[in-house]
Design a protein around this nucleic acid. Sequence first.
DNA 1: CCGCCAGATTGATTTCGGTCAAGGTTCGCC
DNA 2: GGCGAACCTTGACCGAAATCAATCTGGCGG
Lengths: 207, 207
Amino acid sequence: MGRRRTVSAGEPLIWEDDDSLLVANVIEGVLKLTTSTADGREQIVGVAYPSDFIGRPFGQTSAASVVALTDARVCVFARNDFDRFAREHPELEHKLLERTLAELDRTRAWMMLLGRKSAPEKIATFLLDMSERLADNGCVHQPGAQSGPARQFTLPFSRQQVADLLGLTIETVSRQFTKLKADGVVALPGRRDVEILNRGALMALAG
Amino acid sequence: MGRRRTVSAGEPLIWEDDDSLLVANVIEGVLKLTTSTADGREQIVGVAYPSDFIGRPFGQTSAASVVALTDARVCVFARNDFDRFAREHPELEHKLLERTLAELDRTRAWMMLLGRKSAPEKIATFLLDMSERLADNGCVHQPGAQSGPARQFTLPFSRQQVADLLGLTIETVSRQFTKLKADGVVALPGRRDVEILNRGALMALAG
DNA sequence: CCGCCAGATTGATTTCGGTCAAGGTTCGCC
DNA sequence: GGCGAACCTTGACCGAAATCAATCTGGCGG
């Protein structure tokens, strides 16, 4: 019933306010969910990793755009087919409910960050979050490591995208990264590479 | 199976990070969902109106506190009873899924506001949102009015709570209200009363 | 290998909203 | 009706992050 599809980095899969015609499961890669204002400001409202569900079942329109951050493989379904199938399979609806509730919890925790945290707190929280989220998804170059938060990882985001996730500007993000490096809290071996040198300091900064 | 309960204004129903022992349906009144930092900053992450569902089914702990904003009546269920009952009644789970998806959409729209909107935009968006949400719930003093956004209504929030909802300080909220009044966009007949005099101007400000 | 250019950093300056500090209002309660 | 406290408004000032403006870097195509 589903069709495999590849989406290359930067390519959109779903457009904000469009009719909700498809839903999908992420097989590989990372995608962002965004909303934009008329004048072009963007806010990333969610990030989808492998095994995550994307799209808006049981609704006419999609509230967010979905764009691939890395090359990705997804399994897409026509929304109306999916809706019908789901209603006939309570186990599937239950799984979807559990995932949606978990996503709502994560989204609400992010509202705290957007509304009440300072730039240093936002960056520290972000790095710790990435360290945990990326560890579970084979996105990490950490040979022979047991599970748990990753010490070193590659961000699936550009600086601008980090800014769009945290409600900051690219300059502020850059300055905060530089400061963390200068303070010896992290190392930044490449544009998108992060190595956490002092997790305790990051946790203290995250508040 | 459920028990009726009254919760008076300011009284908590569920505590953040506590074991998720109960879920509930709002019958009457308005409640806030909040998260707090260790140092006491608060962010309102959701607002529950009559017919809304509150609590965290299928999860060990609650990610947010729930506190009544007005005197409220709710119908509470033990969470484990509810979980069991829901799994046996797909129609109920479906309804809950639809509501949760809608709440997630609303929450994501609010992230845009928190991360990217200016104080005037936040206040204007808030007032338009309240005008719509309160119209559907008998919270409005508008005799003989047909449905649609309310022109006049009473906020269920203090100034501090508006600040906690928008990620602002109480002083900024107060100044923005004063400015809207001075510009003739709204009238403020009482501490919590709002009358929209120029909806077009508000919509333009909301962006 | 070199030049190009998108993306990132760095610096100077501005501004919006926060902080600190008084007052002022309203409303419940005696 | 008057008292008191909680809530709200207003003003002066400050500072964090945005904005504006170069410069730098590093990855890629020629």
